[in-house]
Design a protein around this nucleic acid. Sequence first.
DNA 1: GGCCTTCTTTGATTAAGGTCAAGTGCGACG
DNA 2: CGTCGCACTTGACCTTAATCAAAGAAGGCC
Lengths: 245, 245
Amino acid sequence: MERQDIHNSDMPVLCRNCEVRHRGLCGALEAGQLLALSRHTQMVRQEAGSELIANESEVHSYANVMRGVVKLSKMLEDGRQQVVGLQFAPDFLGRIYARHNNLTAEAASDVELCRIPKTALEKLVEEYPELEHRLHEQALRELDEARDWMVTLGRKTASEKVASFLWLIATHIDPVTEARRQEGLVESVTFDLPLSRTDIADFLGLTIETVSRQLTKLRKDGVIEVVNNRTFTVPDLERLETRCG
Amino acid sequence: MERQDIHNSDMPVLCRNCEVRHRGLCGALEAGQLLALSRHTQMVRQEAGSELIANESEVHSYANVMRGVVKLSKMLEDGRQQVVGLQFAPDFLGRIYARHNNLTAEAASDVELCRIPKTALEKLVEEYPELEHRLHEQALRELDEARDWMVTLGRKTASEKVASFLWLIATHIDPVTEARRQEGLVESVTFDLPLSRTDIADFLGLTIETVSRQLTKLRKDGVIEVVNNRTFTVPDLERLETRCG
DNA sequence: GGCCTTCTTTGATTAAGGTCAAGTGCGACG
DNA sequence: CGTCGCACTTGACCTTAATCAAAGAAGGCC
């Protein structure tokens, strides 16, 4: 769609303005390699709610998340659902080397993806070991996150779970703010929740009623201010962190 | 300790009898590469309960699990604990590239490890991309397992959790039996639990009392037979699987 | 073998969170 | 502008698993 033909430039036009180029997968690559990669990529937009990867489906392509939030989930046979991860730019989306997907990916917000066909990426990975290295690092990072979340799921109270979720969003939704927070420059943030109450409940292993009640409690305790159903302000992030257990 | 000097053989003596050579990390390597690797490795035994990796400690070495079960866990500040994974032969133990460990690893049973210093492995990985590929694949496998377990933690009942745990052990403790099971040749198994009730509870996000009660229930329902506290028989694995939710 | 410690089971009670049932608020759309 | 539909909140009640307490087993040690 937005694929570009490149002639006399060192770097693909598509990539030159790419916000995530220095962070994601592509950060591994030189101009020439970037060109090789970009020959196969395609920018696509998907609106909130659309299914990006169907469970059990054959893997045809991978993608980089460029903008927005992607929700990864699994379901038991009887319909009980668990959200097993969220992905933000510039995360890599898709389980490389697998023949079939073993989870469902859905656009939690409107998202922009940079897609690449399975075979194209796999060929490039063989050619540039640095690519595999990047993917490996991301897999390890996701593993760390998954294990951290296991602690939340297994050992935290409902109230701590909800606080942990808000903390996760507050510190992931906007990389710029987050960088400034880590330098101690930010103590208050306002953000839009990328998930519905149902999704939050499925992420936390709770019911929507319990999520709602805990949000009300956090509001009454002044830990959060509810701008509207989907946008919250956290006046004091440290205070929120304390509530995470 | 058991390091070998190799002269005129194609393959290190240490590796020649290694049970996991064809499966784990080393399966990636030719005789010559195996030799390079084995120059740095060291077989060590650790008895049940000993700490293999301390949380927050600096990473000095990695290891392959050769025999036994390793328990990975995380703790909240107030002492609540969550087991976030179990490792069996021939799993790789340690978070490569990280400066500091972010979890605790403990020998759940008596274990045998094939240790390799951090720098040695990292140098080899640079030299042999196939090694990184293997590590990447394991990271992805562990990520899949972690996410599957998130479903168990977040969405299953106490009874389903305990059944899921027994299922996990039954299908992982002995690779030979497991291979035969997958061919439909095995329906009944007997095995030793590598974890205490406390550890099981910490793995499932339950209390030991609840674990105990659910085991009693499974026993009364004939799903398991308790040989003794630590060894169980599952007469009908399919029946157990049904109980996993 | 007997005693002590530790692990495990069992029982009684409580509390956290789930379920069921009404509301409320808000955006979409006629 | 009204009303339909949906997401969310709130309340009453119930179930599950946690907590508290005690009694049994099992392993270690003299």
